[in-house]
Amino acid sequence: MIREDEDKIYVCRCEEVTVGDVRRAIEAGADSIRDIKLRTHAGMGVCQGMTCRKNIERMLREKKIDPDACHTSQRFPVRMVQLGELARLVKEEQHE
């Protein structure tokens, strides 16, 4: 059961996902960080899970689920970057 206050506590600030949302995803069968991400969009925002990941892992462990059994891929970029800036860097690098 989801307590009322759990829908007021945000786990993922970027995508506005609450504790209640994550608990509902676990009840629907999500058993990994990646499942939680696909069902709730937690971790899909600008910080890419840097803030919420630890908390969601803890929520999974509390349910006796091993969050390492299915993690998400770490992908470029580490931090958000403007595409124009990225294109400029690539061009400079190729001219060197």
């Binding site: 925002g45 890419q48 992908r75 470029f76 970029p77 958000m80 403007q82 595409l83 294109a87």
Partner: peptide, 8 residues
Amino acid sequence: KELNVIRT
């Protein structure tokens, strides 16, 4: 170019 990339 105006947009920010967050993931590939």
